[in-house]
């Protein structure tokens, strides 16, 4: 009965932290179980080489997931991130080939990513195209552009220092993982402690509520899609550093992995829910299963079935949990 004050669990910004301890605790248990299981069944899993490989691969998906999280909190979606990964890798590689120094090419590539994101923002806010369709259009356009720019060929022979970005380690921790963690802290801070973070949650609840509360939608919508794409561009640069070349077909279906990581981590496509920590755990779980499956020699196609099922189970169980809580 809606008329009574139910003693349900808290949520929403202030409360979101607490609700996510519930979701996050479950996810952390899953991570631990996965790690224990894989280290017992595969002699390779717990080796330094495999772990650092796992961290590198997870970092790329994890960075994209953090950007996707913010968009999903505003009740949007960005399907173009995978294409942005590809274009960022190619554009940066072409600049490096042309002799542009890394310190110029990398920031420039991230800005290009942000501009693509703001194009999504333009479509969503000014043209009022639903985010799904808007970013689907952008995805297709960008994929085409990548092929045109690169002539559908890989861009190799990059400076050695560039490859070192990916291989470098600090105290045995891969640099890419550090980049991811820095972004994680920044994103978590932005969502919990800043005005724009509040705006994202409020917009995700209802754009009309946001507007009547004096929040200007335009800058916030541009910002969230711009940020998401900038994150994806950074991920694209790191991926190409890891491969030591720009690959025009890179990042295919990465948007789906990012969305999956966000929803496994407690995000909702209806908006106004989700946390950076949850998205990080979601990305780790997805990648660990992929990595473990490969080590155990599971048929890669069967692995996809397992991962798909996992997404449904994770989100389904969370839905049931939330619905129970809501009924009071």
């Amino acid at each position: 009965m809606a008329d009574k004050v139910a003693t349900t669990e808290p949520s929403g910004l202030a409360g979101i932290r607490r609700i996510n301890i519930g979701t996050s605790a479950t996810l952390m248990v899953i991570v631990v179980i996965l790690f224990v299981f894989l280290s017992m069944t595969s002699p390779v899993f717990l080796t330094g080489a495999n772990l650092s490989n796992l961290l590198r691969q997870t970092s790329i998906n994890g960075i994209i997931a953090l950007g996707m999280l913010m968009v999903i909190i505003t009740a949007g979606i960005d399907l173009s991130v995978g294409a942005v990964v590809a274009i960022a890798g190619i554009v940066n590689a072409l600049m490096l080939q042309a002799g542009v120094p890394m310190l110029v090419s990398i920031p420039l590539t991230i800005v290009i990513g942000a501009i693509i994101g703001m194009f999504n923002g333009f479509l969503v806010f000014e043209v009022r195209i639903t985010p799904f369709i808007a970013s689907l259009g952008t995805l297709t356009i960008v994929r085409g552009l990548v092929m045109i720019i690169s002539g559908a060929r890989m861009v190799a022979n990059l400076p050695v220092e560039f490859g070192r970005i990916a291989s470098a380690e600090l105290l045995g921790i891969p640099s890419m993982f550090i980049v991811w963690m820095v972004l994680f802290v920044l994103t978590a801070f932005l969502l919990s402690y800043t005005q724009i973070g509040r705006n994202f949650f409020i917009i995700g609840s209802s754009t009309e509520v946001a507007r009547l509360s004096g929040i200007r939608l335009r800058p916030n919508i541009y910002a969230v899609y711009g940020l998401c794409s900038a994150y994806a561009a950074l991920a694209g640069i790191l991926l190409s550093a890891r491969l030591s070349m720009g690959v025009p077909t890179a990042g295919i279906s990465y948007e789906l992995d990012a969305i999956a990581a966000v929803v496994i981590g407690g995000g909702s496509l209806f908006g106004a829910a989700g946390s950076a920590f949850g998205a990080v755990l979601g990305a780790i779980i997805m990648q660990t299963i992929r990595n473990g499956g490969n080590l155990l020699g599971v048929d890669p196609f069967a692995l996809e079935v397992i991962i798909g099922a996992l997404i449904l189970i994770a989100v389904g169980v969370d839905q049931i949990r939330v619905r129970r809580a809501e009924r009071g």
Partner: peptide
């Protein structure tokens, strides 16, 4: 008027 999924504080 209100953001239903968010907290009273927000």
């Amino acid at each position: 008027s209100i953001a239903l999924p968010l907290s009273v504080r927000t």
